[in-house]
């Protein structure tokens, strides 16, 4: 019997949340089902785009964090 996968299955696969058996079955489907493979490529492209949305804080903020840490002595912060 050919297992039909849902878009949610594909999302779980993309985020490495499938079981080993599901992963193997999905990878088999990606070889044999062109529509499913197309959906996979589109999703992968989108996720690659999401990876580009990375922001960097200013060095000033980082310096302020490190200076704060150095100004506080171990166990001097009230619990």
């Amino acid at each position: 019997m050919i297992k039909t996968f849902t878009p949610d299955d594909l999302i779980r696969y993309m985020y490495h949340e499938t079981t080993d058996a599901e992963k193997a079955a999905i990878e088999q489907a990606l070889v044999t089902d062109t529509d499913f493979a197309h959906e996979y490529r589109q999703l992968k492209t989108l996720m690659s785009s999401l990876e580009t949305v990375k922001e960097e804080p200013s060095q000033k903020s980082v310096d302020a964090i490190l200076a704060y840490s150095k100004s506080i002595n171990l166990h001097s912060v009230p619990k």
Binding site: I65, Y68, S69, I72, L74, H75, S76, V77
Partner: peptide, 16 residues
């Protein structure tokens, strides 16, 4: 961001 790491510092330095 600074507030977040201040909480980290306070938590660690108070032994929590």
């Amino acid at each position: 961001l600074q507030d977040t790491f201040i909480k980290v510092v306070n938590t660690v330095k108070s032994g929590r």
